[in-house]
């Protein structure tokens, strides 16, 4: 039995490869520079690098959903959501 039942597509495969690479990169980062880089950011929370990655991904998912819910598809500009997500991730890393 192959993996055809999982109905893979290139965009979804790329998405999961990105997540996997991000996790590997975080593991290597932690190995090279232990401690998690704790910081108090704009949310007023004490977060580590892993926390910030999690919040960035979760927040980005909701930004995409909110954009889709408000403006619908076809998106007036897919770059708008990417800009919002980038701004969100950048803000969290400050």
């Amino acid at each position: 039995m192959g993996l055809s039942w999982m109905a893979w597509t290139w965009p979804t495969a790329a998405f999961f490869v990105f997540i996997l690479l991000a996790l590997v990169a975080m593991a290597v980062w932690e190995w090279r520079s232990p401690g998690g880089g704790p910081r108090r950011g704009i949310l007023g929370l004490d977060t580590t690098r892993g926390d910030r990655l999690f919040i960035s991904l979760l927040g980005s998912a909701f930004i995409f959903l909110a954009w889709l819910g408000i403006y619908g598809a076809p998106w007036s500009s897919p770059w708008s959501t990417r800009c919002w997500c980038s701004a969100w991730c950048r803000a969290l890393s400050l």
Binding site: M6, A7, T12, F15, G69, A73
Partner: peptide
Amino acid sequence: MTVVNYSVQETFGDNVFFWEGVKWFE
């Protein structure tokens, strides 16, 4: 992962899928 794959496609069974993008989310 399978659910993510299904969420962007349409199927009528028999393991045949058609790309739909974000239509179902909308």
